[in-house]
Design a protein around this nucleic acid. Structure first.
Lengths: 339, 339
DNA sequence: GCTTTCATCTTAATTGATTAAGTTATATGA
DNA sequence: TCATATAACTTAATCAATTAAGATGAAAGC
């Protein structure tokens, strides 16, 4: 038995290759009877449809969309915000009969798969500089989420404004403010930012949020002492607790914690409560993103809700639309018992 | 600027397409000078090498190997055994300049990517029946790890013998034995197996291990009461503790716990110690797989060590070798303080 | 009855590459 | 010096598909 191709199958069935191709792709181009005969004959032969690689070469599209995750796969699939986003992406791709290719931003072999996919949806600013360069010059469609790339369409919320509003809602005169930031500098550990050079200042959502916090603070005539501005490398329980411990030990103790993720905020609240600090009397906390756990926790967390699932959906739609204008998604400030 | 292809680049440089192709793929086929001139000219033009899709169509290989994970991506990347395996795979693939495509077994669209990859390494028996069928009839090379597929090469340890030895090492006359099994039946929760139909009896490593346990028990003239045989859907802290709680409450209380993973065994030990049960005096525990934490824990865990990293490496080698005979990897029974 | 339309199928150019076989030109050996 | 070997390129067939344009015959319109 020789290899099964459109050509060989067409020959054995005594029709042209075009007819076989149409039987699979364009049912309106041939009679119903012949189509059924061809399809069942193919199934019998063990020919399961046109070769996707050849199809992709000829038509220029493979039906595969790569989603590049800035962090490790592990972090991404375990973080509720990211996994919600992926769910939204998956659902919307399936609706368009497209396929998802998950790609970790840490491995930088974009070139290896670039020619096999229709484009890239890039979630979060990659730390890998080479990757950014590859994405910038890629001839494929590239859509960024939660960061910007020159000349590329993006999907995002107005992080500066959202952070500004969330801070404004929680700040009072004479507050001592601490900020638990996410990836403000390029350091693998949790630490105060101090004079360290900011990382990727232009496009990072973390810096947009910081801008918003600072604007709200300025408006309330509050200043931020360097040791009250913290960098966390990842959004999780571990780093949240670690940073909260140190920050809450500062003198004077913060009366407000502005946190760049809900996971961080929840861990910080847990730590504070364990130390006997009353929320919101002695300490007010506000998070970012909005996850279910924030509603179940006591006290409930004030946060900026992002609707990550919808964001995933919007990302796919913007990717497919061909529209290159940046898309600003709605968000919602939801106040809980923590402020 | 028209599209950059081998042809167009060849034309602008005034050489044949073959020469451009050779410049990128077979340096020995042209003079050093010309090659350098071509390569730098290409870089200048923005042509970064032959199109991979066309290359793949022509040569029949893309340099991409898909690794199919039986479980969810989340579980796989967080489980130490699986992530070690993946590390081994990644390292060995890189050594051969091949690329990894991670694929979750739950989404069953193998066909979408099948024509783009050189083959599949399938880690763990997929629960998805359709996927098994697709893998069986795939014209690509398929290698299975930790389970068997008719007519396909596989990489594995002798689970029956390993389980047998580990049980034998821990069993004493008149023991009351409980087994915390992994995916023995098709149920999403932790529960006694009882009369439920076994899942996928033929190829599952869980059943081979169970066979080994039972053989050792028979040899020690011990019998297993149905409610002492437990099924856990996943290998983690949560289900381990849950199952241990119920099993340790049985009357008579087990004196031996045979656990199908180290994660389960450690959780069970944690639960037992919390209840004030002495290990190994009142309860002996043996695990499976071998993870670092088992050595750090007190008491140290007896277990069958599998060397998952080496297994990943072996999987890639077997995949590339073309050899279709099943490969049995070495394992090591390491006794700790838990038995 | 003759042209037009339409449905149905085929022909052949094309997609972006690889590579065996063929063509030069230069170097080597006797 | 002339045949031969070798290095350096080119030619053209091929991979497995898609699809515009062309061909054929039957039905419809006048």
């Amino acid at each position: 038995m020789s290899k099964l191709t459109l050509k060989s199958v067409a020959k054995t069935l005594g029709v042209s290759t075009a007819t076989i191709s149409n039987a699979f792709n364009r049912p309106d181009q041939l009679s119903v009877g012949l189509r059924e005969k061809i399809l069942s004959a193919c199934a019998e032969l063990g020919y399961f449809g046109p070769n996707k690689a050849a199809q992709s070469l000829r038509t220029g599209s493979s039906g595969i969309v790569a989603v590049i995750l800035s962090d490790s796969l592990e972090y991404m699939v375990s973080d509720p915000v990211a996994s919600q986003f992926l769910q939204g992406v998956t659902r919307e791709l399936e609706r368009h009969k497209l396929h998802l290719l998950l790609f970790s931003g840490s491995s930088a072999n974009l070139e290896a798969i670039s020619d096999f996919v229709d484009g890239f949806i890039c979630y979060g600013a990659p730390r890998n500089l080479g990757l950014i360069e590859q994405l910038t010059r890629s001839p494929k469609r590239v859509l960024t989420v939660d960061f910007d790339l020159p000349g590329r369409p993006s999907v995002n919320i107005d992080n500066e404004q959202a952070a500004y509003q969330s801070a404004l809602a929680v700040l009072k005169p004479n507050d001592t403010v601490a900020i638990l930031g996410l990836r403000l500098i390029d350091a693998p550990d949790s630490r105060p930012v101090l004079q360290a050079p900011m990382w990727d200042n232009q496009s990072s959502i973390a810096h947009r949020r910081l801008d918003g916090y600072l604007r709200a603070m300025a408006e309330c005539r509050l200043t931020l002492q360097p040791e009250y501005l913290w960098h966390l490398p990842e959004s999780n329980q571990h780093y949240g607790q670690l940073a909260a411990k140190t920050v809450l030990a500062l003198e004077p103790r913060p009366t407000v914690l502005l946190c760049m993720s809900d996971l961080i905020a929840l861990s910080a609240m847990r730590e504070a409560l364990q130390q006997g600090i009353e929320i919101p009397n002695q300490l007010r906390v506000v998070g970012f993103d909005g996850i279910e756990e924030s509603l179940r926790y006591h006290p409930t967390l004030s946060s900026v809700w992002q609707f990550s699932d919808a964001k995933g959906q919007a990302a796919v739609r913007a990717f497919l639309s061909g529209d290159d204008s940046p898309q600003r998604l709605p968000y919602e400030l939801r106040l809980g018992e923590s402020s």
